[in-house]
Design a protein around this nucleic acid. Structure first.
Lengths: 261, 261
DNA sequence: CAATAAAGTTAGCACGCACTAAATATTGTG
DNA sequence: CACAATATTTAGTGCGTGCTAACTTTATTG
């Protein structure tokens, strides 16, 4: 009856679903606020994964049994060290796959998320290694998000959101969330892609829409969309309280293997 | 570039497991015998998938409910038209992926099966189309097996097995099963790969081992291994007649480790 | 042809993972 | 502080997919 219970060391095979939870906990844990380990609420995970909150509770208990997360009843969840490692592996897989699909198979950058979402659970470490190798071990994915290294290091610098820039600020688009293709197309139509330079001209009074110059064009973006865009300040400007010690990095570098951070 | 809308004629909502059953039914249904659908036994499916026979019965009932197979109690299962279509799609995905991994990512041809086995359930039709396109729409996979076309056609010619050739026959190796890497390595060590020309010199009396000339080398292969090799006769000859004594299914065979190495 | 072997099925169970409804804990507010 | 609003968990359910054990049907064969 009582199966010899698992609850072992970190490296057990997880189901795809469990992996998704881990990834969600990681991403939500570092969303919005730079400071790392905010415990993640059940509802937030439920919303992210599109399932009922009650289901999340159960799964988290399972993950806790496996030693991948810690939960404090009614007070959220955070990853353990091994849970974090797994989450980063998964994110690496996701981003390597996205990069590969765009660069080698001609996928549109705004259409690649779902495919990667499915493949990331099936791809072996060898496959990921080979893809990364073919691409010259890129450090960012097509949406500008940093790719964790094979040994689990990731550039976790918190960047400014386009939505929080002050009027007059100049910035370079570093990346944006990859999970909504329509958002990505919306942004792309306005020239907002990784590497683009933008300048905030003004804000609309009622809805907070942001008027900016992208290249030569004048564009308006809604604050909701803008909040998904991460930017690096290009010139000193008053911008909240964020200090981005921007180690300048060339965007599409090829061949780069040293763990530089 | 149609946007991926699933749920067309045959609803595309199968789980990975169900897909595996379909594939197993297809492959077992045409193993050994060329002419179409011999009903496939529960045990054969169970053995192929590595699960208990009782579990197979249940799943087949589910698939029957979905209209993908027909079962006659105690008398085996066969695919319906839509089940067959799905199976062929899956096989196409598998073989395209194998081809891609070998040709574009440097995988060894004998090491590609498991990876493909997992990816085939996650890859979208668009991904498969793009992979096939990049490869120039190949018609056979790295093991010589024909790749079904996107619209579900496959070259189903039944080829001779190396095990059934008569002494003196000349043949060209067309392909071999992909699911056992150690078998593939065993064959490759003897020069037996798709395209190789072989001539049957003799047979060993006790174990039926086949002595043949591959290129310039003299090689011996066990009948178990040989039965997994499909060949095309190179010279007109008596070989076709052999099927009178050709054992269609030469016994499930007990676990055998390759004789050497 | 009756006895058995082999193949297949049913029954009952477990686990993963989702759901809804209801209970309970925490938090914010008048 | 009491109470409502919100967040979270528990309880009970269902489906997919596997298992073992026991039973039934079909095939073999002495």
């Amino acid at each position: 009856m009582t199966r010899a219970d698992d609850a072992k060391a970190p490296s057990r095979e997880l189901t795809g679903q469990a992996e998704d939870y881990l990834k969600a906990v990681y991403e939500l844990g570092r969303a919005g606020d730079a400071s790392a380990d905010t415990p993640v609420g059940t509802n937030a995970i439920a919303e992210r994964l599109g399932i009922a909150a009650a289901s999340v509770t159960g799964m988290l208990q399972r993950l806790a049994r496996l030693g991948l997360v810690t939960t404090e009843r009614y007070h959220g969840t955070r990853l353990t060290a091994s849970g974090r490692t797994m989450a980063l592996q998964l994110i690496r897989r996701h981003r390597v796959i996205e990069s590969y699909l765009v660069s080698r198979l001609g996928f549109a950058w705004d259409d690649v998320h779902d495919e990667a979402e499915r493949l990331e659970h099936a791809a072996s470490p060898e496959l990921i290694a080979k893809m990364a190798d073919v691409l010259g071990n890129p450090t960012v994915d097509p949406h500008g998000a940093p790719i964790p290294t094979a040994d689990g290091k990731i550039d976790e610098r918190e960047l400014e959101s386009l939505a929080t820039l002050t009027v007059g600020a100049n910035a370079r688009v570093a990346g944006m969330g990859d999970r909504d293709p329509s958002l990505l197309r919306y942004l792309a139509e306005r020239g907002i892609k990784p590497g683009a330079r933008v300048r905030v001209e003004s804000r609309e009074p009622f809805d907070g829409a942001i008027v900016l110059t992208v290249g030569r064009e004048r564009q308006t973006v809604s604050p909701g969309a803008a909040s998904n865009v991460r930017v690096e300040l290009a010139t000193a400007g008053a911008a909240r309280e964020v200090q981005s010690r921007a180690t300048p990095r060339p965007a599409p570098s090829r061949r780069r293997r040293s763990a530089d951070s």
